[in-house]
Write a protein that binds this DNA or RNA. Structure first.
Lengths: 231, 231
DNA sequence: TATTGACAGATAATGTACAATCTGGAATGC
DNA sequence: GCATTCCAGATTGTACATTATCTGTCAATA
């Protein structure tokens, strides 16, 4: 997939979309959650029934999702869920390993003490939580990075990050963090904060890069072994 | 805007979409070409009339374009053309300055003599043409980079590049290259080829980065001065 | 008998027409 | 002058018609 920069970064986060949520949100949620699985055919009439509306809203939602890359549509043959496989995850991580350091480096230059405090507060909360509640952890982890990226002047890059993040979170949700990886995450976050506090833009960027690549390796290996188990 | 990786990278290139082209292609073409200008309201009935169909295909095309970020839709208020202004151009160039070096660096490792020959052939053609025909130049320039990026394993990144490229080409079409910039482009391309031939991945990446940033600066300055003239 | 190809019916996508709902602004009354 | 009401215009949702694709049957052939 690949698009430019979309509409509102659709803050759907983890919350279950209520019955008043748009068809788009519901379908996307079901895709990310795995309820609509990879390559599954998406028939408009079936979806219309499932979500209790007529076909047109479904058709439009599918077109939007296609534009965003979550759905593949073949003319006269309908839509399918775009499979989110290892390669795709790896591809996204590698792009993130470029974008996030770039976003971070700029943040270092403009970071206020107050912003850094917020960063530390979130990190404290993460450590206090200690991976008990995976959903909550994911939420906090997202907020950690959001503090850094949200104020960036490059909205396009920030939006790209958000889009990628949504996908990666959906994947990560399927796998628990290993004990080793948990420790690494904490260390990496602390290192990032440290570099930011020292106003070391290059160091912060490099720390973020390592953080992304570490997470990517971890997830991709998880996916691979899950796939092998299925064989 | 920001999406993931879309459908077929819709090879619309420069060719005028024929009457059999999809509504999506026609609208996108008209947006990139400037016929539908920034912030202009996109009324479904009007578009349906313009392209000779009913409203539904238009609605779906608009949703796809929204997913891709070319159109902004507000609930119950309809769609508008997303303005492609200086900031947006700059944002895209900066992201490209990250992605293209990354794509190039890998190419250096797998580049065959044959691929390098093709690269040089295109470059020869570019120099022979000498900016006479801007459209043809743009086409060749795209092909030059395409040779490098098309075979990359990271389809997501390659698709992102293509999407960005389409937009930047649409912008660049509005402005002629200055004499200085023309010379620079030729030099930069030759430098890139040279680094690739030397199997210097880092050098090639850096050369590409400089190339992108140079083009970006040139275009953004053009846009800025055009805007100032309008005031 | 097994394989292939054509045909037919079912199923689903795509396009058209229309109804319902919302928005924005003009007209009206205070 | 200001708020309210009302109406035109546009979006959004529903129903239906048309067209394309898929599947399974059946006959023809090797």
């Amino acid at each position: 997939m690949s698009a430019i920069t979309t509409q509102p970064p659709s803050i759907l986060l983890d919350a279950e979309p209520g019955p008043d949520a748009s068809i788009y949100e519901q379908i996307l949620h079901d895709i990310l959650e795995g309820r609509l699985e990879a390559n599954q055919r998406l028939k408009v009439t079936a979806l219309a029934g499932r979500y209790g509306t007529s076909t047109n809203p479904v058709r439009e939602a599918l077109q939007q999702l296609r534009g965003e890359g979550f759905v593949v549509i073949t003319p006269n043959r309908g839509a399918r869920v775009r499979p989110i496989d290892e390669e795709f995850a790896r591809d996204i991580y590698e792009v993130e390993a470029l974008i996030e350091p770039y976003l971070t480096a700029w943040f270092v230059g403009i970071a206020t003490d107050e912003a850094i405090k917020r960063l530390e507060a979130v990190q404290d909360e993460i450590e206090a939580l200690g991976f008990e509640d995976p959903l909550r952890h994911s939420e906090l982890d997202t907020r950690f990075h959001q503090i850094v990226y949200d104020g960036h002047y490059n909205r396009h890059a920030a939006d790209l990050w958000w889009r990628h993040r949504e996908i990666l979170r959906a994947i990560a949700r399927r796998f628990p963090y290993s004990m080793v990886r948990r420790k690494e995450i904490l260390v990496e976050h602390r290192l990032i904060i440290e570099k930011i506090k020292a106003h070391d833009a290059d160091g912060a960027a490099e720390a973020v890069r390592a953080h992304i690549l570490g997470s990517g390796r971890h997830i991709v290996e998880h996916m691979r072994s899950a796939r092998n188990r299925r064989l």
